[in-house]
Computed example of a mutant assay.
Amino acid sequence: MKRLLASIHDVGPRFEREVETLLDRLSGHLGGPRLAMLVVPDHWGEAPLTPGTPFATRLRGWADAGIEMFVHGWFHRDTTEHHGIAALKARHMTASEGEFLGLDHAVALDRMTRGKALVEDIIGRPVAGFVAPAWLYSDGAMQALGEAGFALAENHGRVWAPNAGDRVLTRGPVITWASRTNGRQLSSLAASAVLRRLLQPAKVVRVAVHPGDAHVPRLLESIDLTFRAFTRGGRVPSRYADLAR
């Protein structure tokens, strides 16, 4: 069976309208809310996810409808001063968004466990796993994943099981888009067009969208083309948890 895994990143009260727009759009391609949401507990320290609020109620409703919920960092913002290769990653792969790229083990574990407890309290069930903002992890963060009790984790190149000896469940690049600048939009449009063809034989394809995509018509068109390319051939929209089975 060939699977399609879809996810909406940066889910939280700051981007409620954008998340709703993307959920409606993706559900039309997937035959329902057969996707994952990556939840940020307090985006940039300015948009806390609070139990009992209307957004928390909506998040629980989405989980009840079958959407997988992942913890997606805590702040999403990277405030670490980087050097060497990490500095290159922080500068070129994300704009101060790779929160877990420079964290030591203790801080990473604390943010993971607090995020897990908060989201699970709101949705009333275990989270599916953890995905670091911008898919970037420090060595300490990698170590903390299993200790925090996450069943699944993801970076840009693979999905693995931290609580099962870091067993790799699938490999391959995520198809995603960048809306921040015109140049990044153009490069992501080109990359997605290539990957739509190259990944057709793959057993598992992952596609991720972000709130900023909802404001750029040409990115939305590319997202539609990508989902059509992978669903029209009979590829099955699936859950991340299906990989572990």
Rank of each mutant, 00 (worst) to 15 (best):
G172L: 07
F100K: 11
Q200E: 14
F130M: 06
R197N: 03
S7I: 03
D121L: 09
V168Q: 11
H29G: 04
A56Y: 00
V168A: 08
D42V: 10
L225S: 10
K2H: 14
E81T: 11
I122R: 05
P133N: 11
D64I: 02
E18F: 02
A148Q: 06
T226I: 13
L109T: 08
R218F: 12
H43N: 10
A106Q: 12
R25N: 06
A86F: 02
R245V: 11
P162M: 10
R184M: 11
P13K: 08
G234C: 04
A95K: 11
V11A: 01
R34Q: 11
A63E: 01
L109A: 13
H215L: 13
P48Y: 01
V204R: 00
E20T: 03
L4E: 05
T80D: 11
L35P: 11
R58T: 08
V209P: 13
I122C: 09
T80Q: 12
P173E: 03
M93H: 13
N163M: 13
G12T: 02
H9T: 07
L59P: 03
P211W: 03
A90W: 01
E147K: 07
G61H: 00
L220S: 05
A47H: 15
P33I: 05
I85R: 01
Q143L: 10
L109E: 14
A63M: 10
L38P: 09
L35F: 14
R167H: 13
S192Y: 04
A47T: 06
L189C: 11
A148P: 06
G45M: 07
H76G: 06
I122Y: 06
V127D: 00
A106Y: 02
R14K: 14
L199F: 12
T181D: 08
F70I: 05
T176S: 15
G45L: 04
R197Q: 07
W74Y: 15
T231A: 09
A108Q: 02
L198Q: 12
